[in-house]
Design a protein around this nucleic acid. Structure first.
Lengths: 330, 330
DNA sequence: TAGTTATATGGAATCGATACCACATCTAAG
DNA sequence: CTTAGATGTGGTATCGATTCCATATAACTA
């Protein structure tokens, strides 16, 4: 592999001049610039990123933490982030936390060692106090998940409103016995908590009280959804509708419901969250709450680059619109 | 961020000794090793990977190229590769080619600059001659996609056999008017070609001749599948079964078929490829050909690490089992 | 006991690129 | 015609870690 010295030698100039050409510095004569360019081409020269990083340059790499890429919602989010980033000349380094605190920290460490310029977190496993301590090494922002402190820029959706819209939709359809299914445990803050609140608010405004037996927490997958439905079936007093925190869980419920001979939405109305591709695949098609993934990715990169290029950026909260997509499951 | 010099200073020893401790070299007394370890801990020291890479060490990073991570098949493949890699102490760097030659080359360049130790390609956009020229910079292997030259290690499935099994299954069910839907264009080699051959072979052995009007190429997404079905409907002479190269296309066909009032499998039998989660979500559930994704990832990492750690490895072809999963769509 | 060999430690060069500093021209202003 | 400022070029220290080489001490052998 050719190095900057090789280019210098071949072009008969100094490493300094070559470096200037690479970095588009002024004060290089056109003639020598041509010489250098030619030598670079002849040698197939590519600057060594490790050396540049070591020297303290920007890496033009942005880290993105997701829980797992097999989750289509996050795959799409990564995709939109990567698209936006590459348009601006940045690379993206993907890290999966597998919902594990240690793994998340390991990835944040890339910031310390200048492997990435900044990090976009789409989920948070550790407490914010812990994450915060990494901020001195480079900008960190949240996209999708969030905490209720104005400490880092966040791209967020009004989860509370989303949950309200969904719950109200069910109420308008005449349901009063509504079950609730969420991903988080009993979250103390952030996304999960806001959703819970939104759901509660919608029901209490309609004068409905929540049956604690109909609350399911820590549900994530299609399998989880199937299991939820089976539990529902064993109850004497069953809900007529169920609100879920993810399209996948909703999918599991629908699939198992059909298996057990129930009719959707007549026997049970189901509403999802995310508007993933699966929502259109399910039969009946899933009513769900759409998260504007593409916009989120774009905005995240926009804000991240601003943080990278300007010294001081005011910590801002960006809220994107969330909307209900009515299909056939309600 | 603490450096090796800081650790050396704090422990009162030389950088050399510290380096030895880091790399588990022998010839370090227990006492000094303890001193160093303590200093490292006190400072929260982490070796700077850029510096190590620059010095020519292994990066313990393996690159993986996929067309796009939003494709669930590849998301799962990445996942299994990453799991296997992290177990062996390797990191994974993901690159999306977006089916673009240039993007693929850009990623292969990471090898030149020692950003990654080796690369696993799950798809190939460029001709092998081009890719081959990168092999001098580090090991490259294929996993999933393949070329018909014994030039690099490959983890492959017998695609020809897979297609045959699928086609035979349709034939056994009594179908003789069978359409065919594939991802690749008219591939000259590799996966696509072998599938085509397998399909042809099964049909010709059953004495069925292929109707060229029923061949669809370059089909990848759910939308593509819907479009295929609409085209089918406009034909006077329609097939009674369709073989597709991906579960997603099959899904699109099923969804649109129901929309148009057809009954699956009575009016049209559909068979997919991959056995993605969607196969179980569809209604009716999709009969498909399972690719053992987890095994592929595991084996790929096993072979890659062997290439990395031994000088000479014989170029081998690993063939994994492929099987038919019969569900309700046929 | 002298001479090896194994063990233990440090000094300094090195990887590839950047940037500060010094120096050489050239231009334009006074 | 001198001189300040702009323009152009190269030498060399530097980033953080590894490793060759040199040196020092301990352990072993004849």
């Amino acid at each position: 592999m050719a190095t900057i010295s090789d280019v210098a030698k071949l072009s008969g100039l100094s490493k300094t001049t070559v470096s200037r050409v690479i970095n588009n510095h002024p004060y290089v004569s056109d003639k020598k610039r041509e010489q250098v360019l030619k030598a670079m081409k002849d040698l197939g020269y590519i600057p060594n990123p490790s050396a540049r990083r070591l020297r303290g340059q920007l890496t033009t790499t942005i880290g993105v933490i997701v829980p797992r890429i097999v989750n289509p919602f996050f795959a799409h989010l990564i995709n939109s982030i990567e698209q936006a980033a590459s348009q601006k000349g940045y690379q993206v380094l993907i890290g999966q936390s597998y919902e594990d605190r240690e793994k998340e920290l390991a990835f944040l460490n890339l910031l310390k060692t200048k492997q990435v310029d900044g990090i976009i977190m789409t989920s948070t496993e550790n407490d914010w106090d812990v994450i915060e301590s990494y901020i001195e090494y480079g900008p960190i922002m949240l996209c999708n998940d969030y905490v209720n402190q104005e400490i880092a820029p966040m791209i967020r959706l009004d989860q509370s409103k989303g949950a309200q819209i969904g719950a109200n939709h069910l109420i308008e359809r005449g349901h009063r016995k509504i079950a609730y299914c969420t991903g988080g445990l009993f979250d103390e803050q952030g996304k999960g908590k806001d959703r819970n609140q939104g759901f509660q608010k919608a029901l209490s405004e309609a004068g409905i009280k929540i049956n604690p037996k109909w609350i399911f927490v820590d549900q994530h997958t299609i399998e989880d959804g199937k299991y939820v439905l089976r539990q529902l079936l064993e109850m004497n007093d069953r809900p007529t509708a169920i609100f879920t925190g993810s399209d996948e869980v909703a999918g599991g419920i629908i699939i198992e419901a059909k298996e057990q001979g129930l009719t959707i939405p007549n026997d049970l109305a189901v509403i999802g969250f995310d508007d993933q591709p699966i929502a259109e695949i399910l039969d009946p098609k899933l009513t769900t709450i759409r998260q504007p993934v593409d916009q989120m990715g774009e905005k995240a990169i926009e804000v991240m680059i601003e943080m990278l290029e300007k010294e001081e950026v005011e910590v801002k909260n960006y809220e994107l619109p969330i909307e209900l997509v009515v299909r056939q499951s309600t």
